[in-house]
């Protein structure tokens, strides 16, 4: 013998079933979505904002006077988990330690950012840039010149980012 509540529940279930109530509420929802603005970005024209700490293309920085920051301490080479960095060093003309070779294999690099953390002089950094590619085999080995060039190009941005992050470093 069904109780009154059971009968009520059954009646309700029947009502929902035969008036297609659930389907109608679904259709109502999608119709509302139809008139709402879209969230798509038209990619090459519009881009999602990237964080100041974004780990994109690798670069080497200089001091404002044009001197290379890198002192060939090889901490980054040591910390690199992918063994992507190769450094050779020799004293420069002015008697400072300087790199003669600073190669990063971009194919090995996993963009973990440990080299940047290890660097005592803020020389090796990861820029925000993500739009880069290699045309020829061999281009994936980023030489010292290429890295410095990248650093020169984004220097203003890099300096600004590091200033903004100063409190948290």
């Amino acid at each position: 013998m069904a109780t009154q509540e059971d009968q009520k529940a059954l009646l309700k279930k029947w009502f929902i079933c035969w008036t297609l109530a659930e389907i109608r509420s679904g259709l109502h929802l999608t119709l509302l979505q139809l008139v709402r603005p879209s969230v798509t970005l038209r990619f090459p024209k519009e881009q999602t904002p990237r964080s100041r700490r974004y780990r994109g293309a690798l670069a080497l920085r200089r001091y404002p006077n044009g001197e290379e920051r890198c002192i060939a301490c090889k901490l980054c080479e040591a910390v690199c988990p992918a063994l992507a960095i190769t450094i050779e060093a020799a004293p420069s003309a002015s008697g400072q330690r300087q790199t003669t070779r600073f190669d990063i294999d971009a194919f090995k690099c996993v963009h973990c950012g440990l080299c940047e953390e290890a660097c005592p002089v803020d020389s090796i950094v990861l820029t925000r840039e993500v739009h880069y590619h290699f045309d020829r085999r061999g281009d994936n080995i980023l030489t010292k010149e290429a890295l410095l060039a990248t650093g020169d190009r984004y220097e203003a941005q890099l300096a600004q980012d590091r200033d903004d992050e100063e409190d948290y470093r």
């Binding site: 999608t30 979505q33 139809l34 709402r36 603005p37 879209s38 969230v39 798509t40 038209r42």
Partner: peptide, 13 residues
């Protein structure tokens, strides 16, 4: 287009 807008995309443009 319609399905795109319902999913809050733009569809082919």
């Amino acid at each position: 287009k319609v399905i795109g807008y319902i999913q809050r995309r733009l569809g082919p443009n």
